[in-house]
Amino acid sequence: MTDHAATPQPGPGSEPTPQPAPESGPAPQPAADPAPTTAPTVEEPTAEEQALAAQALAAQALAAQAAEEQAAHRTRRRKAAVRWGCAVLVFALAGTGTALAVTAPERTDIPGLATAGDGRYTFPPLALPPLPSGKAAPNLKDKAKDKGAAVHLADLRHLLLPVPKEAGGSVNPPVFPAPTAPTLPAGSAGSASPTASPSDTPSGTPSATAGPSASGTATVGPEGAAPANWVSCDALLGDLQNPARMRTLLRQNVCRAATVREWTASDGTSTRIRLMRFGTSAEAWDTFSRTRSEIQLKAAPDARTAPSSADGELPDGVEVTRKESRETAGKDVPTTRLAFVSASDVVAVITMTNPRGVPAAAFRQVVDLQSDLLA
């Protein structure tokens, strides 16, 4: 037996006995899960994945390097284009400046481009003097010379070669006055009539020192524009070693008029050009042919005929005989050169002297230009 009575159990259909409410307080917390004892498992990449990743990294590196190279290449090209552009601009400016510097001044004024001087002179442009009204220029090709077709009717003084720049002359073309009939000086050789006799020629013999200044030659001005004066035909005798023979020749052929021009260039070469006019070309030719063979000048008493290859270039109707002295200077350059020119009714005597030698180019130039004026 027990001391406690048994708790009556509710019977069927009876209401349950209410239980006392539990005391208020914090609700019990569920117990925490125990910490896992092992780390989560991480799968290692396979070899194929590692290779693919390496290839991707390499491709990215190559792409980055290519981009950098392209950027550097573009930069270099831009810099090169700028440099070449600047170089082209500099060369263009330099070329333009050089072209202007070369073409603006005279070629002879540019150091290194000027042609070495060979002794030739600087003459003004040659110009023929005006003819009298109604008269024609001489036709030296006309065989009927004695009929007047080849007679020079222009002022003989203006047919002389002008003074070159090297002797104080001008380079401007000459200005000729209106044509007038030639007025022979007192005591000149002969009259203007074709029938003039030898007795009309003055009988006085000029002194051995007679020159252009002594015979009335006009002094050439600094511009070389002043024409030479008319002189006596006998004025030539003062230059000759045998004047008596020449005087006889001038009387026989009746020299009608004469003029002379002379100058001394900066190289020391003295030039004298004499022109003599005759009534007919036959008289002039006889004087020319005998003078070149029989007459000797004091400047070169032993002058000998000089061979020349330029005679084929002479104008039609002009004949030239060149002589040179045996005395030479330097490289066997003659100290005196002579030329006798025949142009229908006019005979020219050209004398050039220089103790240091007369340049061949200057002599040939003077002879050719004087021949052109007479042609």
Rank of each mutant, 00 (worst) to 15 (best):
A54M: 03
A101D: 06
T269N: 06
G134A: 02
E43I: 01
T305P: 04
L275E: 02
K79R: 15
P30S: 03
G168L: 05
G119F: 01
T287H: 05
A361I: 09
G330T: 00
V42P: 08
A375G: 13
A178P: 02
C255I: 01
V349T: 10
F278E: 06
A258I: 04
A244Y: 00
F91A: 15
L131T: 14
I295Q: 13
Q70I: 05
L369S: 11
Q19T: 04
D109K: 10
P179I: 12
A127S: 14
S342N: 12
A21C: 06
P132A: 13
E106Y: 14
V231Y: 01
E48Q: 07
S270T: 09
S24I: 10
R364D: 13
V163Y: 00
V163T: 12
S270V: 07
P36S: 05
Q65K: 14
T205F: 06
A329D: 09
A31R: 09
A127E: 04
V346M: 07
K145R: 13
G134F: 00
F340D: 06
Q70H: 06
P111G: 06
T280H: 02
P22Q: 05
V347K: 02
R274I: 10
P355V: 00
D316C: 00
V260H: 13
G330M: 08
I273H: 00
R292L: 10
D372P: 07
A150D: 00
H4Q: 14
P185D: 08
L93A: 15
R261V: 13
T98G: 13
A81P: 09
T108E: 04
K145Y: 07
S203W: 04
